[in-house]
Write a protein that binds this DNA or RNA. Sequence first.
DNA 1: AATAGTGGTAACCAAAAAGTAACTAATGGC
DNA 2: GCCATTAGTTACTTTTTGGTTACCACTATT
Lengths: 120, 120
Amino acid sequence: MARKYIDNPNACSLVHTMNIIGNKWKPIILYLLSNGSMRFGMLNALIPTISKKVLTNQLKELENDGLLLRQSFAEIPPRVEYSLTEKAVGLLPVLKLLSDWANEAYPEMDFEQCRIIENG
Amino acid sequence: MARKYIDNPNACSLVHTMNIIGNKWKPIILYLLSNGSMRFGMLNALIPTISKKVLTNQLKELENDGLLLRQSFAEIPPRVEYSLTEKAVGLLPVLKLLSDWANEAYPEMDFEQCRIIENG
DNA sequence: AATAGTGGTAACCAAAAAGTAACTAATGGC
DNA sequence: GCCATTAGTTACTTTTTGGTTACCACTATT
């Protein structure tokens, strides 16, 4: 009845991944940075509904988890560029699959209409 | 400077996926059900740190999002079996990739040691 | 008559996450 | 001397999420 063995390690690494990227903003941030580095203000402009406080926080966490590189230039006004690390790049194809899955699984949803990111 | 076009639809479907599965418990639930259906009490026993209230809640949301099938049998004491829908089955390989990614990206973490799920 | 077993629900509380608004440092341009 | 600019920070409030305990319905067993 109770199974003899449950694959804890796989569950744990999955949970770990979700702890790192499984929230409201982080996948979007990674997604936006997939084409190259971007400044803080640009990220903030492209995700109009995020507050500066939360964006700062998410970027810090992603940096701590080794997904982002933060480059601060000694200029006035300040300039800070964020870019993906190799770790994060390895995640991109999986994020693409997650997005493909939603398109297939929820064809009734019109993702064309939605606005998370401002078009330039 | 500002890019001309940003692929909103892809970002939106990714966000949608995260809204559905991107939290503390749902990936574990899907993972546990990947080998077949399971009763409420069994899920509760295998995820020892989840409360009944929250488990009920997560199962309901997964059912509403079309990932779980809930079968209630008219017996005393009650029996309720949860199983994955086709939609959810389509997600399993992607969850596996997410878990593989964590193993690769964080080799210093010892996922063998962790205990989310009770071994039988 | 009391208890165990199952899958919940209700009321209540604590903690975490997110939002808001004002503020800062340092410089260039007017 | 004043304002704009950028990447934040701080203090405060609100919202969301999660946790705890007690309880219920219904039957079989003791």
